[in-house]
Design a protein around this nucleic acid. Structure first.
Lengths: 106, 106
DNA sequence: ACTGTCCGTAAGTTGAAACTTACCGTTAGT
DNA sequence: ACTAACGGTAAGTTTCAACTTACGGACAGT
């Protein structure tokens, strides 16, 4: 908890979303992620740090490189938060609709 | 489409999330939303505009006030995007796990 | 018509975050 | 040991968004 917020903030940035989407298809070292990106490698590195702190990716060392991959955990928490929100919002919507119908003919 | 991104960016801001969470329990005019908030009423107004442009809330005029309420539409799109992401990420995860198992005994 | 309430918008300030370049440590290969 | 590849971190710049105050327009009641 208080974890979805950082995940939300992490995914808000377009460049970071691009990094994340590249990881969607499988793990990758930093250099490969950065190549073909509109920003420099250090920038990608910094984005990866944010994603990691948000629990959205994990890092694994392999020799001189660091392999990053998506962490289903963080994504799951975000999904849970959204679902909960979705449910209560729909409840409020329904309750209000019924109330409105009651007021229509007083 | 290209709608989840603005929704994501909208919900990334803590104050805006606070506004949105207040609407979670039912519709409200701006003044009531702003009262008891850590920011001024104009600030809340500006946040509501962003939420509206992201398709997360709707606005209805009632005399001199504007009633804001959550728009399930925007929330649904965001949820759909996340679900899709979730699915493909899990697929990649599974595929990689199998590949890893195959490499374990070559 | 006058007054008060409600709220959106304009204009300006400020702090944070997304970049860049430069640098350094670590690992692997020869 | 030397060298090259890989990538994290420091420092500095710049852009942008979140706020403030000030203002004005629309509606409701008297």
């Amino acid at each position: 908890m208080a974890y979805q917020s950082s995940a939300l903030e992490a995914l808000a940035d377009p460049t970071r979303r691009l990094v994340f989407e590249r990881l969607r298809h499988g793990p990758s070292p930093v250099g490969r992620l950065a190549s073909g990106m509109p920003v420099s490698r250090p920038a990608v590195s910094q984005h990866l740090r944010v994603l990691k702190e948000a629990g959205l990716v994990t890092e694994e060392q392999d020799g001189t490189r660091r392999i990053y991959r998506i962490d289903p955990n963080g994504l799951g928490q975000l999904r849970a938060w959204l679902d909960q929100f979705w449910d209560s919002a729909l409840d409020a919507f329904k309750a209000e609709a019924e109330k409105g119908a009651g007021e229509r003919k007083p």
